[in-house]
Design a binder for these strands. Structure first.
Lengths: 138, 138
DNA sequence: TTGAGTGCAAAGTATTTGCATTCCA
DNA sequence: TGGAATGCAAATACTTTGCACTCAA
């Protein structure tokens, strides 16, 4: 896990620290997580690790292209690893559940936007709000 | 402008106030706006109107179905009127500009998600992040 | 008249920043 | 050793809430 981290850091002349390793690992383990959730996870192994460090590190990892985030809910950014298949997020407005869907579903959208507006879509950042099957059934 | 407001309020037994009229008007004028921007706009005509009222009113207008919001950027929700054509939002990561695109572009996406996941998409809430034509050209 | 709505101030939550200390290279 | 990175605490931003006053019905 997190093999790319060391080389990405070195390539930029940045330092490899335990905190950075732990934060990336937490994101990969949790799959979808807010900064708070990352903190809780990393503190199991490093209780003194600080929330500021989580914020700073998430931003760094994002710069390095190792994680991205999407805004799934009101204010809460949710981070996830860029390893694994591209996916987009389905956020249920009723129950708050977040599902993943294949990014393929959005390729046509991306193509249309490119054609109409010359806009290059980042599909991974896409959050679709709506109602999930379970909630719709009720 | 804002004809629907009075009847929507009365239908619920709520009161028609100048503040509510002004907030809705501001959203319709500004097209895309944060609570802060709404405040600035309404204060031109009602300097004493408070930010709390803006928040409360935006939430109410949303309940009434007269406005929606999307999370275009980090923490700032952006409100817009539900009058006019359905549209989705293209947010440029480089320059921060927000464009609108026809919601039609996302119909296929919505259909696919329904089919694969039984998920009912609210296209109006959709924010697509990426790079706009101008920034891509550089 | 009366209670929904507002303004104000204070509280709550999320995120960022300055600075002294730590520790990687 | 030197400076990047961290921990801590304080600052900032955003949003919500309690309460007394106002005003639409």
């Amino acid at each position: 896990m997190a093999e790319g981290l060391e080389q990405a850091l070195r390539a930029r002349g940045l330092r490899v620290t335990e905190q950075r390793r732990l934060v990336l690992e937490a994101v990969e383990t949790l799959r979808h997580c807010t900064p708070e959730q990352v903190l809780a996870q990393v503190q199991e192994q490093a209780p003194s690790l600080n929330l500021s460090t989580v914020y700073r590190t998430l931003e760094l990892l994002q710069d390095l292209g190792l994680v991205t985030h999407a805004h799934l809910d009101h204010g809460a950014p949710t981070y996830h690893s860029t390893r694994g298949r591209e996916h987009l997020h389905l956020v249920c407005r009723s129950c708050g559940k977040v599902e993943e869907a294949s990014a393929d579903a959005a390729h046509q959208l991306a193509a249309t936007l490119m054609e109409q507006k010359g806009f290059i879509s980042d599909v991974r950042h896409l959050a679709v709000h709506g109602t999930c099957r379970d909630c719709a059934g009720e």
